[in-house]
Design a protein around this nucleic acid. Structure first.
Lengths: 216, 216
DNA sequence: AATAGATATATGATATATCAAAAATCGACG
DNA sequence: CGTCGATTTTTGATATATCATATATCTATT
């Protein structure tokens, strides 16, 4: 019998709002009105307000001086500011993961690479993004550090919405899996330092592909 | 005329609670009761509750399965889990800061080192901790990345309370300023890589001094 | 017609009432 | 005495009422 999930309305509102954010349902700079959202979700204002404040604390939303709450727009400079941070943390995770991976993990990563290739051939943007994320987080999870995982997850939430456009860049779509293969083979050789540098390269290429297409 | 600061009760409650947390006023695992805190601060439950939830979102507080809110106790393993993360981020910040520092910054850091020496001689624990923090954050601020700064600040908030004991370890108290001097001279030479490694060494020494004295 | 002031409305902030779940207390029974 | 169960109390969760501020609308004056 499955565990009874005692999810508070605040939690549910949070997840609902998060889903709306990551899928880009809320336009940047458009204020999120507590009462409106409360009515939309059919609950009172309190849980909505708490969920919004939680998202503000996580910097996924932003309070304007007029105290209205909006989704901050990701500018190029802000996106690029995240790049070295992501390289540091995700590179560290890859390095830590390398000696902790076994044949089963390598097989799993290999399979993901193959499936990513299929999505690239089929121009399946949604599938591509989901599998790319799964490939990366499969590695990060093997770092064995939940704190590190959480920090990386938070960063992906912040830069995530931008990635939707990643698939549209021809060069990246056809070549990013090469980096994935490089990462995997370095990990299979137990070469943690090189696994890190290939992963950093993957992130850098993605940023190079995306940043010219961003405003600011 | 100074700008009118419009601080909400939630914000004030948050800061009050944060101060209580960093100064160790709340014992770990002792539940923080909303109504009690509300009465203590002379405000209603709502802002207290929101401040608590914000602290939970920042992982400075923890909700138990019974949904009571407590300050999580920092175990040795958790503390050590933060070490590589802090090395990665704070090392990165030192590296980024190095080419951005000028004579004024070096003078400031030098002065901080001198003042830290005085506190060490006088067994002034509070002064020592404050100045040590100021030394580190003076560097991190020069990284030029507010996102990076914020992440590091969050990490210091989490591991901060533990540091109170740092001053009591004889060896660290007498030698940590050596690392500070090494960091500064590397930065003055413009050797970012070495500045990073000395800073990592400083963090590692501090962890070595503290972790044996922690439970778990 | 443009602008300043006044009024109305919208919306976030706070307090409070109510509900539900958890913890503590009490009491009967062994 | 101790244990199990019922009852009471505590406490977090939610809804709602009220207040304060920001925004929009209106009106009068020029």
């Amino acid at each position: 019998m499955s565990r009874i999930e005692h999810q508070s309305l605040t939690d549910r509102a949070y997840q609902e709002l998060l889903r709306g954010l990551t899928s880009g349902r809320f336009a940047p700079m458009q204020p999120l009105v507590i009462r409106t959202l409360a009515e939309t979700y059919g609950i009172s204002a309190t849980p909505i307000r708490e969920a919004l404040q939680r998202l503000v604390a996580e910097r996924l939303l932003q309070v304007l001086p007029n105290r209205s709450i909006v989704v901050p727009q990701m500018t190029r400079s802000r996106f690029l500011e995240f790049l070295p941070i992501r390289c540091a943390l995700e590179g560290l995770a890859a390095e830590m993961a390398t000696p902790r991976c076994g044949p089963g993990d390598f097989a799993r990563l290999n399979e993901l690479i193959a499936r990513i290739s299929v999505t690239a051939e089929n121009f399946d943007a949604a599938g591509y993004l989901a599998l790319n994320r799964e490939f990366h987080f499969t590695i990060y999870e093997k770092s064995g550090s939940t704190e590190l995982m959480r920090l990386i997850q938070d960063l992906w939430l912040k830069v995530g919405p931008v990635f939707t456009g990643l698939f549209d860049t021809e060069h990246y779509r056809t070549h990013s899996n090469d980096e994935h293969r490089n990462i995997l083979s370095a990990m299979e050789r137990g070469d943690a330092a090189r696994a890190r540098s290939y992963l950093v390269q993957d992130l850098t290429y993605a940023a190079d592909a995306l940043s010219p297409r961003m405003q600011d």
